[in-house]
Amino acid sequence: MTENVIITIGRQYGSGGREIGIRLAKKLEIPLYDHNLVAMAAKELGISEKEAKEADETALEGFLSSYIVGPGDYTAYMNAEDYMRPLSDRVYRTQSEIIKRLADRSPCVIVGRCADYILSDCPKCISVFICADKEDRIRRIAALRDLPERKAAEKIKKVDRERRYYYESNTGEEWGKSGTYQVVLNVSLTGIDKAVDMLAALFNGLCD
């Protein structure tokens, strides 16, 4: 397993976790992997990026139970057993292998995708969960998405439910539970800038 220092970030919707990941990667001058992992998985599977996105973190039970055998989806390197699996399983397995390869390549920040679980054997992987008070999350999403606060609250509830299902169905661990992660940060207390500084200090400490 890699000796590179890796920071994985799980996050509540509206907590600013992705923004923290972007700022942290820029501050440390290391790669950030997030939505681009979907495109990488799609390319390896020989499917469209749209199909891969639909099977990503927003997949719920109904989609997880659907099987895909559409025309044009078959590729020479995949066997029949692969095509008996839900597309979401295939995307998850492929993303997992990509994450391991990227972690072996260089230090990096990975947002979502169960990366903390996938890299749990990595001795220098810092698993982080970002949360925030509900009111702050509602205000943030209302402003970012130009939504009334009621709609923002509904969106937060939906996305958090989807992320919980995705994480727990793939890992068997409890999403957002303090014992699941090495570091849990409440951005309502620290602010985004301080959260970035704290994680950068942890990263640099492991690099010394």
Rank of each mutant, 00 (worst) to 15 (best):
G176A: 01
K158Q: 14
I30F: 11
I110W: 02
E29A: 13
S88L: 00
I68F: 11
Q12S: 09
G16D: 09
A195H: 10
E174P: 00
A80C: 04
D56W: 10
K151M: 14
R113E: 05
E135Y: 07
S188F: 06
V128Q: 02
D160M: 02
G17L: 09
Y117A: 08
E57Q: 07
K194H: 10
Y67F: 15
C131S: 14
L37V: 10
P31W: 03
S48V: 00
K27N: 11
R164Y: 01
I126T: 08
Y166R: 11
Y74I: 01
R105P: 06
R137F: 03
Y166G: 01
A39H: 13
I7W: 04
S127C: 06
Y167I: 00
Y165L: 14
A132W: 13
Y74Q: 04
M40K: 11
P107M: 11
R18G: 12
A52G: 09
R163E: 02
R145F: 08
L119T: 08
F63L: 15
A153E: 10
S106V: 09
S169P: 00
L119S: 13
E54F: 06
R85C: 03
I22T: 14
A200N: 03
S88T: 15
D133M: 02
K100D: 02
E154Y: 02
H35L: 10
E29Y: 07
G21P: 10
K53V: 09
E54I: 07
R140W: 07
Q95P: 06
D160N: 05
V183G: 12
T8C: 12
V159W: 00
M40Y: 09
Y167V: 04
G21Q: 11
D73C: 05
R161A: 15
I126Q: 01
Y181W: 01
D136I: 01
K50Q: 11
I110Q: 14
G172C: 01
Y92Q: 05
L185Q: 01
N170G: 01
D104Q: 14
V5H: 11
S106E: 15
L206W: 12
E57A: 04
Q95L: 11
N204L: 13
K177Q: 02
C207E: 15
S88W: 01
V69N: 15
D208I: 10
P123K: 04
G179W: 02
K158S: 05
K177H: 02
E19I: 10
A143S: 07
N36K: 06
S169R: 11
L45E: 00
R137S: 10
T58L: 11
C125I: 03
L147A: 06
G191R: 00
R93S: 06
L24R: 10
N36Y: 04
T190F: 00
I110E: 11
L87N: 01
G205D: 09
V184T: 14
L189G: 00
S169K: 06
S96N: 08
L60C: 09
D136S: 06
G179R: 03
A153D: 08
K134Y: 14
I192K: 07
A42R: 06
R137K: 09
N186H: 12
D73N: 07
S120A: 13
A39L: 12
I99D: 07
A52H: 05
S178Y: 08
L87I: 12
E149L: 04
I9E: 06
R11P: 03
S178P: 01
R163F: 01
A25K: 08
G21L: 05
Y166F: 15
A152P: 03
I9L: 11
S106A: 15
E97M: 09
M78I: 04
I22G: 06
V111G: 08
S96C: 12
L144K: 13
